[in-house]
Write a protein that binds this DNA or RNA. Structure first.
Lengths: 217, 217, 217, 217
DNA sequence: CATGAATGAGTGTTCATTCAT
DNA sequence: CATGAATGAACACTCATTCAT
């Protein structure tokens, strides 16, 4: 059983890496098998199809993602902490499941099942309801009209920053001197301030980041 | 000659649509030929390879994109107008070259040549220098540390919003009641305010068209 | 030991059903194993190969078939009884070993070993000699020239009728109203008369149960 | 065009031979391609799938078969001529399309589309209606109850004889001295007499075969 | 006596590309 | 300019068989 589990996990891990690296279509079962140290046929003992394997690669990330907003520790009282915590959790997910999210964001549009899985996780009724309720508790938010859309877009913004930091190497020859390597803590603080106060306003005294020394994933 | 040009353009237009719809790998030359009303062999009279065709599909969008920041009309004096104009130009590009950007954002990571083309356009020395100079002229910006990164991320945020609005149909079954269909003008105003003042601060009197305290979708 | 025999028989029974239903090539060892409630590997404890299993499926039918003409009760004095008895025995075999004959008639031509097994059983010297001797005893037979061929062909005719009766369900949509469901007894009587007197001559008085002038299906 | 047609026909002819020789499942596209002097991929320019090719192999035989009973020359006045002509036509089809019928009789049961094609041809309403009408005109037929079934079964009987004559070589080692090599004319005469009068009755004077010297396929 | 993980050769099928016409 | 037949390598997937346990 341990051997079997080992094989399955080796397959998934290798496939995830390859799918993220070269794309789903450009990755062959044969490559995945070689990476896992198995024969092609062996893959099909664990997965019915290449697509099944794709879904399996991404599932843990979506499961983890689903738990994000349910967690009790999101129930913080002030908007700044709430916003930062949300970003922090999201960034932690991007760290932990970087490859999976890379796969998701590039393949989901072309794969109906993946798209469905992603939507059902990200846009589940429960999540939306819980998120909306939390937000409605904050009076400081002045412009709610597109709050949902804006928050969603900031997730992609955060992803794009995280992703760019990860491919700095590939960008080096195109970027003048390499993008600023900002620490996670600084990035989170900056984004929190940005979301709350934009680029022109100073954060209110006493709300500044110095108080945020909490651990990070 | 006009016939030839005609054929070439029919090929590119059809290929762009197919690449955007189904992805590069999932689109066959045969399909493209059929769409263009030509034979498979005819494609190779205009393009040396499928990849060449891919690059050709995306080139006009990148060329247009390159002109964006060079234009004189970006030389506005106040930060709000500058920011809004930048967003507006960007959104206009997304409108005009929606299919091309869809292709870029999904294929560029997996195609070295496409990636290079995109980087050389988006991250060209000229662009960065010009952009940086403009920004340095505005004293209102309080937190410049990651200004570049943040602005770049907002481009992806804007793209994500635009894209989500375009696939509303596919999302309908996953979203509670359909995402708010905000007009381009409102979207640009909201994003400008968001970037400048965040979600908590009111814009300075007189800088906004409207007071948006309405409910949320 | 009883367990083992049990397993072996379960395998053979399941395989026979699957081979008859889907064909030899289209049936996988894995299916057979599942049907028998065993693992794939277990099959190879009882059979050296899939082909071995195929032969085992069909063997009992051939063994039974071999006994047919040897039996003493075939030694009847009149031709009608002899002919009918032969048909009756044959039909009984088709009933008892329907699946096996289905396999035989569809696979034997493509499988040398199966073909050999079948020929050695059906066309054995003993059988032919015994059959010929019996026939030579009947003076009523006017045209012996191809008696052997004709009798052999009637076996296939009988099989085709029996088989058609078994797949009535699948034929229903193609047949006007469903083929006449004739009882075994009537079928045997009809065929006997047909073989002896054809379709135009009435059987001699007293040699038939009934006068069949009824309509046709 | 002539080249193309040539290829298609070479593929079909080769496939038909291989399917008949080794069975559908046991024949690979690669073999068919080699036989036709083409690459594997080329097959798919002419047929969408292996199954399509199978149907194409068999179609001409079924088309010809469909025409059999429609032909005017079947409108003969006496039962003997009618019966013999039917057998003769059938045997001619078996000669002309021997390989196709071999395929049909071994694969049709396992291939729904083939089965359907065969049934729709053999059991078409028109055929049955036309056949029934013709038969009803003959008063000599004493036992009509299973006339349809019996005639159908005689087709299989005729097939089995024809087939056995074709595989005499393979049977030689199992048969005492080789089966009687009866000419087509004699076979048809014998079978006609058999169907009309069975094995015991002499045909009425003057109806004998000497009058049948007609050409044969 | 039985398992089931693993193999490896094979399957039907697709497709970018070439080239004679 | 354009065709479309042909290639050949690749693909996802299957399966009879083996073997360590």
């Amino acid at each position: 059983m341990s051997k079997k589990k080992n094989s399955r996990e080796r397959i998934v891990a290798g496939a995830r890496e390859l799918f993220a690296e070269k794309g789903y279509q450009a990755t062959s079962i044969s490559e995945i098998a070689t990476t896992a140290g198995l024969s092609e046929g062996a893959i099909y003992r664990y997965f019915n199809s290449k697509e099944d394997l794709l879904l399996a690669c991404v599932k843990p990330a979506l499961d983890d993602s689903l738990d994000l907003i349910k967690q009790k520790d999101l129930a913080v009282s002030d908007l700044r902490s709430f916003t930062r915590l949300l970003l922090e959790k999201r960034l932690a997910l991007f760290h932990k499941h970087y490859l999976s999210y890379k796969i998701l964001f590039t393949e989901a549009y072309f794969n109906k099942d993946l798209f469905k899985m992603m939507c059902e996780t990200v846009l589940s009724d429960d999540r939306l309801k819980a998120g909306t309720e939390m937000i409605l508790g904050f009076e400081e938010i002045k412009r709610l009209r597109n709050y949902f859309t804006i928050m969603l877009s900031q997730v992609f913004a955060l992803w794009s920053i995280h992703h760019l930091r990860n491919i700095t190497g590939e960008l080096r020859e195109y970027l003048p001197e390499g993008m600023s390597r900002v620490s996670d803590q600084d990035l989170l603080d900056d984004m929190t301030d940005f979301i709350l106060y934009g680029i022109t306003e100073n954060p209110p005294a006493g709300s500044e980041k110095d108080e945020n020394n909490g651990g990070e994933a």
